[in-house]
Nucleic acid binder design. Structure first.
Lengths: 204, 204, 204, 204
DNA sequence: TCCTAACCGAGACGGTACGTCGCGTCTTAGG
DNA sequence: CCTAAGACGCGACGTACCGTCTCGGTTAGGA
């Protein structure tokens, strides 16, 4: 018996959850979040724009942060590409990173992400949730790529993969959050190039 | 006549600003900010702890963010080390980065910085101020180091220094903000090593 | 269909207004107003004493003055006596005035009324509201009494009733606001006596 | 040796009080008070308009109320007419009351007076000062007039003069403070007529 | 066909913090 | 000794969101 069936077994009496409200809330939150960031987005405004009541929002999302998390997840992580295997570290990383970087630069996600990061600093539980949904999946994909490169002998066995991941992703977050330079495709290629070269060092 | 003299010429009428209040406000804000981050720090609480009135705070700092900026700047950037010239890119970068990384890891600055970054996303003016005081000075120091390395012929003339800076600093911000791993000295050495190796690539 | 039914037809959606809060606010305001007058009564203090939030007060009373107006109206005008017809101007006026004067003298209403009058000077809308609720109802009662006296032939048809009302009520307000002498029952009788004599003049 | 000389004997060292400031403060306060009443008049605004510092105002006037008192006294009581003796109660009262009523109606004094009365309710000391400067002098003038009428036998010895004064002045304050009707000359004549008739009653 | 559980909107509630204004006091430099 | 300038501690203002709580109504499955 599958998990899904097990969950569906619950008796579910009473009026079912309104799908219309769920979608309207996510849509309203999305617009407001991308418009002004987490702080500028009030639950009252979300409720009003969605045509629902605040109680309905709080019934399904315990906090504004978790609502934002789901909003972002829904429209962002939806298009996470399947890992492709090009046979080279640089190729694999580029295939992984370039669509993500393009998406990051397309809309003002920085506003929302910075807000979520800020909340995460003071709320360990939320931080955990945030990492589990946004950070680790992407790092996992890159980890596999590095693992394959090690297996192939392309890079050293003792490569510090975790630090390499911080270098790789950190560079994009740096531009996303500080806004001092755009997240261009060229930047993505340069970053991947430097990271690959960095871990490919051959100390004599 | 020097600038200093010219400034001193100002008549300085009226009761002078209270140095005691200034220090008390910065001290109170510092404690509260490191304790709970930007959001948890209310101007009311700062005023009460400092033994001043809110009006006095707002007279000198237009917003909580700018107060936090000055607080952080005062106690953080105070100990920015003078650039040292070791004759090697790796040595220079390590001398610059290691004290900074040590400081970053010593106290919960992540809370405050994440908060400031969040505000910067929605307030271009504040973002500019933030970059001018926190980001650019440090990048300038590293820029010089890279410039010397290019001059020495240690790295290629066409090195993308700006991207290298994003790699370098981004890695530290990544750990600071995401909290998935500690900002150890070992991490600093690894990051610098990878960055140096990355820009030292010798394409055949 | 009666008006009452028509009003009841209103759907009354949402959480109903808290009767407990309404009463607590009026009670708290009453105590504070009689204790220290309008100026010394802060909305913060009313909210704290009533155990409500300021927002709840402002939701139902747009200003401190209108809250004070309702407070006073509730506990003061509640006991406005029905007009009695003694068949003589002096008797009717005494029956109307003496309970009112007794009430005026019993508690420090002067504080509140003086405050309200002060606000009324600068706020025509509030002045209108004040007159409609406090002044005109009492003047109307006295107007009727004078009208009956004219009808009976007790006083001249061309009596300037409005001025007589100013004389009558003004004397009490004079003592109430200036506090130079108490509002005794004897004073009430004297005032009514002089006013009745004044309008009963028979110029030869 | 006169009192005046004795006072002038004081050594008076240092810079003398600035007459210019004194006048400017009174003028500024007068404009602001007549413009918006006591509450709307801030000491900051008075100081700014007068071109003085707040400290200078507080050095010579202990509070806003006492400043307002002097302002009003200066421009109002200045023209208190000398008592005239017409030989009849009505004539004497009219000579006393009509110029005062005309002045009352000419400018928005109600605003200021209502404000002062409000403050007097909560500050017995100020109430005393207010009565001594504004109320009693005028009542004294009227008291003398009633005394002469009693002496002449025009009215009864046992006339309750104090109540008569409350009737007389109260009628004007009533219109001044409630604003329901104008302070016309006709009203002054009517009031005086009724008061005189009231105290002239000849009970058989 | 009714009962009853779970949902829904509307909107009032107790709180906390906001940024501003006015008070009366103070601390300077200067006439 | 007085003055202007202006900063100071204090306390209240009226507003905005927070997350919670009633309400009257709606929508389903089970009795």
């Amino acid at each position: 018996m599958s998990d899904t069936e097990a969950l569906q077994e619950a008796p579910r009496r009473g009026r079912p959850r309104s799908e219309r409200s769920r979608k309207a809330i996510l849509a309203a939150a999305s617009e407001l979040l991308l418009d002004g960031g987490l702080d500028s987005t009030s639950m009252d405004a979300v409720a009003e724009r969605a045509g629902t009541s605040k109680a309905t929002i709080y019934r399904w999302w315990p906090s504004k942060e978790l609502l934002a998390l789901e909003v972002l997840f829904a429209e962002w992580d939806a298009q996470r590409p399947a890992s492709s295997d090009t046979g080279a570290l640089a190729g694999d990383l580029l295939a992984l990173i370039r669509p993500w970087a393009r998406q990051l630069g397309a809309r003002p996600y920085g506003r929302v992400i910075a807000g979520l990061l800020a909340r995460a600093q003071s709320d360990p539980g939320f931080a955990e949730e945030y990492r589990a949904r946004f950070v680790e999946p992407r790092r996992d994909q890159a980890r596999e790529i590095f693992a394959r490169a090690i297996e192939r002998g392309e890079i050293a066995k003792r490569t510090d993969v975790e630090s390499a991941l911080d270098l790789l992703y950190g560079a994009f977050y740096q531009r996303l959050l500080h806004g001092h330079a755009p997240l261009t495709d060229r930047f993505a290629r340069t970053v991947v190039g430097y990271v690959v070269a960095g871990v490919s060092q051959t100390p004599i």
